[in-house]
Nucleic acid binder design. Sequence first.
DNA 1: ACCTGAACACCGTTCAAGT
DNA 2: ACCTGAACACCGTTCAAGT
Lengths: 225, 225
Amino acid sequence: MTSDDMPRTRAPRADVRRNRARLLAAAREMFLRDGAGASLEGVARLAGVGVGTLYRHFPTRQDLLEALLADAYDALAQRGRELLESPEPRRALLTWLDDFVAAVSEFRGTAPSVLVSLRGERCEAFRSCRAMREAGEALFARAQESGEAPAGVAFLDVLKLAGGIATAAEREPGAAGRLLSLAASGIAPGAASGGSGTAPGESGAAPGEHGTSPGGSGGAPNPFG
Amino acid sequence: MTSDDMPRTRAPRADVRRNRARLLAAAREMFLRDGAGASLEGVARLAGVGVGTLYRHFPTRQDLLEALLADAYDALAQRGRELLESPEPRRALLTWLDDFVAAVSEFRGTAPSVLVSLRGERCEAFRSCRAMREAGEALFARAQESGEAPAGVAFLDVLKLAGGIATAAEREPGAAGRLLSLAASGIAPGAASGGSGTAPGESGAAPGEHGTSPGGSGGAPNPFG
DNA sequence: ACCTGAACACCGTTCAAGT
DNA sequence: ACCTGAACACCGTTCAAGT
């Protein structure tokens, strides 16, 4: 495949790959504990690597975060394609949005970075981010076509709204589902709970195994309804 | 009124009041420029005061921010009471929410602090915050009673959702109105633009004079519809 | 080519000394 | 009683020296 006259991109040295992997693992651990603003020096220390190495691999905190987010984006893209098979367009969309919010909320303080990704600014995880967006967009389009989602709305705005919800629910695990339901039904009459806007939480079907929701929709009973 | 045997709360010295005022003015200026994470040392310097004085007046950054937010909360409470006179319950509610989002977005990165206020944790601006909440809640209740807002929804969740929207729209002035409309109509059929969910932006009537929206609903044409 | 870690810069926070 | 600002602590970032 690779033509001879193009600049040779050699396979990275083994220790480089290993360092990168260690840094990502350490970052994940630190971000889970301390949020997306965790000490980078601490990340390097935990990875057993000099700080310089961290900066060489990931020049900015955003780069590091996005490298982790890329996995989440990939999983969401996959999940979106699966949900496209499900028979209920609207429910599929809302379930996917619920997963999106859960993924964004994995580390505290991630939402702003995700919004940066969505805007496409300097996105280290550009491919993954776009794949995710397209998968979600397909679900949205299908719901629109069957008259179960508003026409004339940009899907990107739906994602931004979901990103905002992720921030708002950050320190309050139970809130994510409620706020998403509220946004889904609208601050509008006839909405209430249990209505057409409620899907998240009991997705039931489909496998997928997220594995890392920071507490899932969490034990506490729904405070309204 | 003040009984003689209660601990005397003397009126603060003139220079203390002046320092406080200077610090607040400086903080406002810095936060406008650099967001809610601006350098506190810079605030003290701009106020022409030692850092120690800043910390004496406002032990934490949250305290400083909330002292500024208190004004915004008071204005919103006032505005809410005015809007209660207006004849269209739903439109009044949405207009108020638009003002809320604008106020929260005045400085970048304020939304998390507002959400803390709403949760009532160590709220320096507790009275103002509660007054604002109650004013908003009255608008919401009226809209519910006339069947123009969902029953069984906690108003606090509506505010949290609006807080999330403020974050999501932070770096993108035009988005606030769009996202709020979207949340108001719901990610639901028959919503589209211009529908029953659209009020913000052209409130037209009522005075109130906010004065400090970071760009208002801003010149740019609405990207959808 | 990559890694290391000391060195530098910056900022938040405290507190002894001043008024 | 309040203010000041030097001193301390911590962390992000760079870069000369090593492998």
